[in-house]
């Protein structure tokens, strides 16, 4: 008998409620994916304001859930389990989703699963491309995270190979956008400008690629500073800033490092599948370069469609379904949201 899993996401600035069907053969089918975003309320601050995000989650949660059930043509009483993002993320924002999830689970008398947001970004790919081979490699890139992970079992066993030692890739995009007077969030406008620019125009540094650097860690802080220095130098000389060339060269440096390290990790561990997910996965240059390099190395590349790559409830429902299918025990009703939940803890 198939089961319906409701997923609730509130770790950053998107309130997401997703519904999936877990089939008896273990496949997971997407039924609804509703998101309410507070991104516009943060734009003038140049980054997510936690209190603004928390307030928006509280307002949006029940209406978003309503929309999800309407979209799937399901009733709340059809739900067989609730999954919720328990971390990592913003403390106050996470708490809204976790509190609501506990109430839904209690009222509907179904098990509750507090799950890991980062694992959700990987699990969401199964909605589009089917079960994940074991093992596979995952590259998570977004405004909040940049991580290279080995996935032996999406429901239980994830190991971090490397992560950023400073800024997340998406954060670097936001900061560089500010330097170039482009709007927040910086990903889409930089991607757009870069398409008209020359990626080889400026040789920006590739962070953490020296012989003594950690093989699979990332650093984007130096790159961000190098872009600012270059722009300030041109301003001082009274030159017009070639925004498109700067954007293209910056984006090339990011995509180059991310894909080079991911492909190297796959080769060294003999892993044949790479999943790229997170908000930055929608970046056109990153996906193009990844496709090129994976094809060369004989690696099967999986990138969920952009709508699934950004934060949403469907990814949490999908992960919840895999956790349920694996027979993992449910979470207690007194669980805490954990802003620093480690990536190897898939459910709590």
């Amino acid at each position: 008998m198939s089961r319906i899993i409701m997923g609730i996401e509130s770790s950053c600035d998107e309130t997401g409620v997703g519904l999936v069907r877990l089939h008896d053969d273990g496949t997971v089918e997407l039924l609804a994916d509703e998101v309410a975003s507070s991104v516009e309320q943060h734009a003038r601050f140049g980054g997510v304001v936690p209190e603004v995000a928390s307030r928006a989650h509280l307002e949006a949660l029940v209406p978003t859930a309503d929309r999800a059930f309407a979209a799937a043509d399901l009733k709340l009483s059809d739900v067989d389990a609730i999954a919720v993002t328990a971390g990592p993320g913003l403390a106050g924002a996470l708490l809204v989703g976790v509190a609501a999830a506990k109430a839904y689970a209690t009222a509907l008398d179904v098990p509750l699963y507090g799950v890991n947001h980062l694992a959700g970004h990987i699990a969401v790919d199964t909605l589009e491309h089917g079960p994940l081979p074991s093992p596979c490699l995952a590259l998570l890139v977004s405004g909040g995270h940049t991580q290279l992970l080995r996935v032996d079992d999406i429901a239980t066993t994830i190991t971090e190979l490397g992560s950023t030692v400073d800024d997340a890739a998406g954060e670097a995009y936001d900061k560089v956008a500010r330097v170039l007077d482009l709007p927040y969030p910086g990903g889409p406008p930089i991607d757009k400008a870069a398409k008209q620019g020359d990626p080889a125009a400026i040789a920006f540094p590739r962070g953490m690629t020296g012989p003594r650097d950690a093989k699979f860690d990332f650093s984007f802080s130096g790159l961000k500073t190098a872009v600012a220095r270059w722009v300030e130098g041109a301003e001082r000389r009274g030159e017009e800033i070639p925004v498109n060339d700067v954007a293209a060269s910056f984006q090339e440096a990011v995509a180059d490092v991310l894909t080079a390290k991911a492909v190297r990790a796959a080769k060294e561990s003999g892993i044949g599948t790479l999943v790229i997910s997170g908000g930055v996965a929608a970046n056109s240059r990153l996906s193009a370069l990844a496709r090129e390099r994976c094809a060369e190395a004989g690696i099967d590349l999986r990138v969920p469609r952009p709508r699934l790559c950004t934060d949403n409830g469907a990814m949490i429902a999908a992960l919840g379904a895999h956790v349920v299918a694996a027979g993992v025990g449910q979470s207690a009703l007194d669980i805490s949201a954990n802003p620093a939940l480690p990536v190897d803890v898939v459910s709590i």
Partner: peptide, 11 residues
Amino acid sequence: GIATAAALGHA
């Protein structure tokens, strides 16, 4: 508390 009450009321 408010998220709890809202979700209970909804469910």
